[in-house]
């Protein structure tokens, strides 16, 4: 068991290394001199040379990569070109709002989407099914920021239930946190629910066609028993998988939502960094979210065996 977990964890190393290499090359191989890009338009002719020296850009590419990787492993994510403060610290300051909204979104989505998907599969081709499918295709089709603005328009500007913008951390009290975080979370929920509900429905439909479901009915089990005890556990693995892979989608959504609601999180940090061409920050954010993605999916992979005994370690 633990041997397998170790091997599975080690198997993420190549992927993480590839991600790091990719992010490294992103800046180094893009057209133009990285030093000149970093120095910016207002640079004096001497500045690029200084930067090159400072960042070790005169070294061979592979050596640069390993130096950079070494810094990464020591937790050194570089220094912002704009604020000249360590990137790690900047991220640490901003991660709270982002994580709390992402977790709130995940929580709401999973509680809502899985029952929705089950219901839709159970009442296949009935009204409920059509409603769920309509909601889910809308969730994929309406851009997050449009949903966000519509929510602001209706719930904040017209009804006055929530503040239009801003963020209060959870340390300032659950209620004030929810007042600022609920609307962004609900905005993000639309995509995530769409994704999970759709996957749940599709897999429940597959499973409900299986022989053992007929056996469960032949035992005289109630529909609740058939759906939850027999079907859901069998459909769990792909649903878990999509919750994990959907994390990438969620991160994209957070970036946009933070802009709409003006929340000082990683998303705002990224957008500001892009507008200012602050490359170390962009690099660090991409690396961090990718590693988080790999980590979440590793945990989900390892949890499969809780649901399916055929997956053995």
């Amino acid at each position: 068991m633990s041997g397998y977990m170790l091997r599975r964890a080690l198997a993420t190393l190549p992927v993480m290394t590839l991600v790091a290499l990719f992010v490294f090359l992103l800046l180094r191989l893009s057209p133009g001199d990285p030093a000149a890009i970093i120095a910016g338009d207002m640079a004096t002719p001497a500045q690029p040379e200084q930067i090159r020296e400072l960042m070790g850009l005169n070294q061979p590419l592979y050596l640069q990569f390993f130096i950079w990787l070494g810094d990464l492993l020591r937790g050194d994510l570089g220094v912002s070109l704009i604020s000249h403060t360590p990137v790690a610290g900047m991220i640490a300051d901003r991660i709270g709002p982002t994580l709390s909204i992402a977790l709130l979104t995940m929580l709401i989505s999973v509680t809502v989407a899985i029952p929705m998907g089950i219901l839709a599969a159970w009442r296949h081709r009935k009204l409920v099914d059509h409603l769920v499918m309509t909601f889910s295709v809308l969730g994929f089709s309406v851009p997050v920021f449009v949903t966000g603005y519509v929510f602001v328009l209706v719930f904040s500007l017209k009804l006055g239930w929530f503040p239009v913008q801003g963020f209060t951390p959870i340390s300032a009290g659950l209620w004030s946190f929810l007042k600022t975080a609920l609307l962004p979370a609900l905005t993000l929920t639309t995509i995530y629910v769409a994704l999970i509900a759709r996957m749940t429905r599709a897999n429940m439909l597959d499973v409900l066609g299986e022989d053992y479901i007929r056996t469960a009915r032949a035992k005289g089990g109630s529909e609740m028993r058939v759906l939850f005890r027999h079907a859901l556990k069998n459909a769990a693995v792909p649903i878990l998988t999509v919750i994990g892979t959907g994390f990438a989608l969620l991160i994209g959504g957070v970036v946009v939502t933070e802009t709409v609601f003006n929340i000082p999180g990683i998303g705002r940090l990224t957008v500001d960094a892009i507008l200012a061409r602050d490359y170390p920050v962009i690099q660090a954010v991409i690396l961090l979210t990718s590693f988080l993605y790999v980590l979440i999916n590793l945990i989900i992979d390892l949890s499969y065996s809780l649901f399916d005994p055929r997956i053995r370690y």
């Binding site: 990438a248 970036v255 954010v285 990718s290």
Partner: peptide
Amino acid sequence: MAIPSILLAIA
């Protein structure tokens, strides 16, 4: 796939 697509595209 591990790199969130919007972030990758932005970069």
